[in-house]
């Protein structure tokens, strides 16, 4: 269980998040959606302890403000929106950075398995800095899943926090990565993902939190949150939510004109 209460974040004096309450449960994929600059990454950084916040965040019942970084690293891994790398590491060496010394060092094949899971088998000896943007993002994802490989450890769930895991990917790899998140949750782990693609969100998420201007304006099942009115308020453009006969919701821009203020 992730429980974040009354989270306020300021950069300088400018408030970015205004007393946000956010919950996510293990066994579910929870998506955070909203327009650029609405505070999605900021919320993710607060609940992973990366930036200072006012309020309270507990992960698996533990106040993260009082947990050591290595204790947190044992139960959750974080994929940032972008990860520049300072030195010419190979792909295998990058993925190994995610492996903590004690717990998983023995599982030598984990690197290969994690890379296979993101469709990068055979990339082990390539140089990270010479990969394409989408390939780099998938290497980082492999590093992140290697860090918390088993979704449940000693009876308590582990967590993936992903900031735009599929934004740089083609449609085939988008589905592959979303399925990875889905499987992780189905196996008992928790997944919190910042998303831009509302259709993928509708397909794969169990819970959607919609953020606009630093406030959550809708939270619940995709069918309840991904509604014409709410989306228009958040994104300031006209979209039409449709329901396909078998596959649930899909969302299309209604017309090329912006909604009136």
């Amino acid at each position: 269980m992730l429980d974040a209460q009354d989270i306020t974040v300021r950069y300088g004096r400018r408030p970015i998040l205004h007393g946000v309450d956010f919950r996510a449960r293990a066994g579910a994929v929870t998506a955070i959606v909203g327009p650029n600059g609405s505070g999605k990454s900021t919320l993710l950084k607060a609940i992973t302890g990366e930036i200072d916040y006012q309020g309270f965040v507990a992960l698996n019942g533990r106040d993260i403000a009082h947990a050591k970084v290595w204790e947190l690293a044992a139960i959750r891994a974080v994929l940032p929106q972008a990860t520049p790398l300072a030195f010419p590491f190979t792909v295998a060496e990058v993925v190994r950075l995610g492996l903590s010394r004690g717990i998983q060092a023995g599982q030598s094949d984990l690197i290969g398995q994690a890379l296979a899971r993101v469709g990068l088998s055979g990339y082990e000896a390539r140089f990270y800095q010479e990969l394409s943007g989408g390939e780099q993002q998938r290497v980082q994802l492999a590093r992140v899943i290697a860090q918390v490989w088993s979704p449940v450890e000693d009876g308590s769930p582990r967590w993936l926090f992903l900031d735009e895991p599929v934004s740089a990917l083609d449609i085939g790899h988008q589905l592959e990565v979303m399925q990875l998140a889905r499987d992780y949750a189905d196996a008992g782990g928790g997944v919190v993902a910042v998303m831009h693609d509302l259709n993928l969100t509708a397909m794969f998420a169990d819970v959607v939190a919609l953020i606009a201007e630093g406030r959550i304006i809708g939270c619940g099942a995709p069918g309840d949150v991904l509604q014409n009115d709410l989306l228009r308020t958040a994104y300031r453009c006209d979209v039409r939510v449709n329901t396909a006969p078998a596959n649930g919701t899909f969302i299309l821009p209604h017309a090329a004109r912006m909604a009136a203020e």
Binding site: E50, L72, V78, P80, T83, A86
Partner: peptide, 14 residues
Amino acid sequence: LALGEAAAAHIGIP
């Protein structure tokens, strides 16, 4: 730290 300070903390480095 080659991943940046934030990512380094996320993999458990003080």
